[in-house]
């Protein structure tokens, strides 16, 4: 079976608050935060699997 997938992670291109301090040297976001700070991600995926759809992957 063939399938195509298109998606966006973080559709609104949301970034965390910029750090007010400890942000020298070009740093904007606190990289020790678990909040992602890479912005929106677009992707496409093509997938093909043989056989029946009984256990669709």
């Amino acid at each position: 079976m063939f399938s195509l997938k298109a998606g966006v992670q973080n559709v609104f291109d949301n970034y965390p608050d910029p750090g007010d301090f400890e942000v020298c040297c070009g740093r904007i976001y606190r990289s020790d935060s678990v909040t992602p700070w890479q912005g929106a991600l677009f992707y496409l995926q093509a997938s093909w699997s043989s056989g029946s759809d009984a256990r669709r992957h």
Binding site: M1, F2, S3, L4, K5, A6, G7, V8, Q9, N10, V11, F12, N14, Y15, P16, D17, G19, D20, F21, R30, S33, T35, P36, D53, R56
Partner: peptide, 23 residues
């Protein structure tokens, strides 16, 4: 003495999958 508060964030994901054959 110096503390920064980082606000809550919401990240929204969207995805569409099209199967070649209807299931």
């Amino acid at each position: 003495e110096t503390v920064q508060n980082f606000g809550a964030e919401v990240m929204v994901d969207a995805e569409v999958t099209r199967m070649a054959r209807g299931v």
